[in-house]
């Protein structure tokens, strides 16, 4: 049954679930939501399993029409959203009735929105995941005008009243997507081969998010970090790895990264901090802070357990 129609996909709307695991051996990257925090809250508001697929909408400017009554949630970037012209609150569940139009404007803060529905959107699975990776031509193609997405219709209006609006996000978990962010670094990979002065540079000077950012990686600009003294045989790349190419400008590799790469890496961004980078517009100021592995593992575990993630 077709239930949600894409009236306008905006610059980029993609189906994403938690990502594709176990296929990097074939060269397939993981994909999945760039902002895992916003994505998880979307499923949480609907009582969904965390693997229920959602639409990741980059830079808003999108609209969707319901063909059945749907229970939905919209999280992520701060923007003006409306149902048939009436303002809609983000970060909570709501009912989109048959024939109603949901519209998203350009975000004032952040980049990416997540539209979740009760029980998730249906899409064909490849390697046990519906995650779309455009670079690999894998998954549903980028959504376009007129596409219909199947999802479970939400039939019972009494059930709707009792289910909707129940969950609210505690204010301390509501992200602000500020123009200045701190990212904690787990030093790993070739970190011992970077000289002390360059590590000092990384932690003591701000870096800026450049316009050259996508789901594959986020290029930063700032003081040069030398890496040409490091010779490396191509090796596997973790999500959030901080790669330092010969020009000394860091690239943080994200969900759609290449599976193997030959540039030196100084470590990884803490997983719990990556959602802030996922929402960072160009010119956002980044401060790197040296992180503690054990402490960050505990923070990550709290997140995993709260949302009952299969990680």
């Amino acid at each position: 049954m077709h239930s949600l129609e894409i009236i306008n996909p905006g610059p980029l709307s993609l189906i994403q679930d938690l990502g594709r695991f176990g296929a990097t051996q074939h060269g397939l990257t993981q994909g999945g939501p760039i902002d895992l925090h916003a994505y998880c809250w979307g499923n949480y508001f609907l009582g969904n399993d965390m693997s229920c697929p959602q639409i990741e909408i980059t830079l808003g400017q999108a609209s969707f029409k319901a063909h059945n009554n749907l229970l939905c949630a919209l999280t992520g970037a701060k923007l003006n959203a409306q149902i048939d012209g009436q303002p809609l609150s983000l970060w909570q569940s709501f009912i989109l009735k048959k024939n109603q139009l949901l519209t998203l404007d350009y975000p004032t803060h952040g980049l990416r929105s997540y539209l979740a529905v009760k029980n998730g959107f249906k899409a064909p699975k490849i390697f046990n995941s519906v995650a779309t990776v455009i670079r690999d031509n894998i998954g549903t193609f980028a959504l376009k005008q007129g596409d219909m997405l199947s999802c479970s219709p939400f039939l019972d209006s009494i059930q709707a009243k009792s289910t909707a609006y129940q969950h609210l996000i505690p204010p301390r978990f509501l992200p602000q997507y500020t123009k200045k962010i701190n990212l904690r670094v787990i030093e790993s990979y070739q970190e011992k081969q970077f000289i002390a002065e360059d590590k000092h540079t990384l932690y003591h000077y701000p870096y800026q998010v450049s316009p050259f950012c996508d789901r594959m990686g986020c290029r930063l600009t700032g003081p040069v970090i030398n890496s040409h003294q490091i010779n490396l045989i191509s090796e596997p790349i973790a999500n959030g790895a901080i790669q330092i190419p010969p020009n000394g400008q860091p690239i943080i590799l994200l969900n759609d990264r290449q599976t193997l790469g030959g540039y030196p890496k100084i470590g990884c961004i803490a997983k719990i901090d990556l959602p802030q980078l996922a929402q960072a517009k160009p010119d956002t100021e980044i401060h790197f802070i040296k992180g503690n592995l054990q402490k960050l593992q505990q923070e990550w575990l709290r997140f995993v357990r709260f949302f009952n993630l299969p990680f």
């Binding site: 176990g22 990097t24 051996q25 045989i233 191509s234 090796e235 596997p236 193997l260 995993v304 990680f311």
Partner: peptide, 21 residues
Amino acid sequence: LEVTPSYTSLFIQYRSSQLSG
């Protein structure tokens, strides 16, 4: 969760809620 071999290295991602590093 993930095993990625390369020329001289092997990357392993594990379910940290069930197994410690």
